[in-house]
Computed example of a mutant assay.
Amino acid sequence: MATNENFFSGFQVNRSLLAGGVVLTGIGAALGAAGTVMVCAALATAGRDWVRKMDAPPTAIAHRALHGAKAASAAGWDAWRAEQTSPN
Score class of each variant (00 low, 15 high):
38 M>A: 15
17 L>P: 00
23 V>E: 01
36 T>F: 15
51 V>P: 02
49 D>N: 11
7 F>V: 05
44 A>D: 03
37 V>P: 00
74 A>Q: 06
87 P>A: 15
4 N>H: 13
17 L>V: 12
27 I>L: 13
42 A>N: 09
14 N>H: 15
24 L>R: 13
42 A>V: 01
11 F>K: 10
77 W>H: 14
27 I>R: 08
56 A>H: 13
70 K>M: 11
24 L>F: 10
57 P>D: 09
77 W>R: 12
17 L>R: 08
87 P>W: 03
37 V>Q: 11
45 T>H: 08
80 W>N: 10
13 V>I: 15
8 F>V: 00
4 N>V: 05
73 S>D: 04
43 L>R: 09
70 K>H: 09
30 A>L: 06
1 M>Y: 03
15 R>K: 15
43 L>C: 09
26 G>F: 02
9 S>P: 00
13 V>Y: 03
72 A>I: 02
46 A>D: 15
36 T>Y: 11
62 A>R: 08
64 R>P: 01
25 T>R: 10
75 A>E: 07
27 I>G: 00
3 T>H: 12
23 V>D: 05
25 T>Q: 08
13 V>Q: 12
26 G>P: 00
13 V>P: 00
74 A>F: 07
20 G>V: 00
72 A>R: 03
61 I>N: 11
52 R>E: 07
24 L>K: 11
69 A>I: 14
87 P>M: 03
50 W>Y: 14
76 G>N: 12
85 T>F: 05
3 T>F: 10
48 R>A: 12
3 T>E: 14
19 A>D: 15
80 W>G: 01
1 M>H: 12
23 V>A: 15
4 N>I: 03
53 K>A: 14
53 K>D: 13
66 L>C: 07
31 L>I: 04
12 Q>I: 11
59 T>E: 10
30 A>I: 07
33 A>E: 09
43 L>N: 07
24 L>A: 05
54 M>F: 00
76 G>D: 01
51 V>S: 06
23 V>P: 00
60 A>M: 13
35 G>K: 00
6 N>Q: 11
54 M>L: 15
20 G>H: 01
38 M>W: 05
5 E>Q: 12
55 D>S: 07
58 P>R: 15
55 D>H: 09
29 A>V: 08
18 L>D: 05
70 K>L: 14
86 S>Q: 04
37 V>D: 11
72 A>T: 09
69 A>T: 08
82 A>M: 09
13 V>S: 06
